[in-house]
């Protein structure tokens, strides 16, 4: 592995008897992702059916293997070899941008005004600020299909709610710190809600299950209420939203 990696990295760390944590970076950066997606692919090719799970996230990749068919030492050796020749993925930087339609409205995005206030903007400017850039998926977690994306414009950065909501409606588009996401299903949540997408983010009957993957580029596209409804969006405001 060559290029601008921080000193002492990459590093292989023990993660139980069936796992290694590959630590590639020490800070969150969009530029990490082509390295991580390349590493995911290389691990799949090298480990084959001895691979149990891969969990890429921001700066690391957790590699879980079958300890009945591979010793931790062998797995470590394979990973060291992969890292030796790893090159960042060129392809993902040209990969198509996935578009998520969003109805930005205070009735489904109660913190739209909070962000506006914090930024000293009007609502339209907040919407423009959120939807005018491409985001990168850094990690999936918290719930199936929940994508941690970044980074939002520093002007609309906003801390999490002091008290998380017990029920955030599915499709809610949200901001926390400089990250943004969309809730795939009804869950508790403490992020600032600014709109709602009619897109189905996690579908057990769809191939691949999750609409978004680590490394994806994503753009939020503003739509109006009529278009949101036409695409099957749930317009019920927060209080009754399911």
């Amino acid at each position: 592995m060559s290029g601008a990696l921080p000193q002492g990295l990459p590093r292989l760390e023990s993660a139980g008897l069936d796992g290694w944590m590959v630590r590639l970076f020490d800070a969150i950066d969009e530029g990490n992702m082509p390295w991580l997606t390349a590493l995911v692919r290389e691990c799949e090719a090298t480990f084959g059916d001895r691979l149990v799970d891969l969990v890429p996230s921001y700066t690391t990749l957790l590699v879980v293997f079958d300890p009945l068919r591979l010793s931790p030492g062998e797995a470590r050796g394979w990973l060291a070899e992969i890292l030796e020749r790893l090159q960042p993925d060129e392809a993902t930087s040209d990969a198509p941008v996935k578009e998520l339609p969003v109805w930005y409205d205070p009735s489904v995005g109660p913190e739209l005004s909070r962000l506006a206030e914090l930024a000293g903007m009007n609502l339209e400017e907040v919407v423009a600020c959120h939807s005018e850039r491409n985001y990168r998926v850094f990690a999936l977690g918290f719930a199936p299909g929940f994508a941690f994306m970044g980074s939002v414009d520093a002007r609309i950065e906003a801390p999490r709610l002091e008290t998380p909501r017990r029920r955030v409606p599915a499709g809610s588009v949200a901001v926390a710190g400089r990250q943004t996401s969309a809730y795939p299903a009804v869950t508790p949540g403490g992020w600032n809600l600014i709109g709602r997408t009619p897109a189905v983010l996690f579908d057990r009957d769809r191939e691949g299950f999750s609409l978004l993957r680590v490394g994806d580029r994503v753009r939020f596209v503003p739509i109006d209420r009529a278009e949101f409804e036409r695409q099957g969006g749930d317009t019920r405001p927060m209080e009754e939203g399911r």
Partner: peptide, 10 residues
Amino acid sequence: MISEGIGLGA
């Protein structure tokens, strides 16, 4: 830390 994968028993 920056969030990362968690193995069984961590």
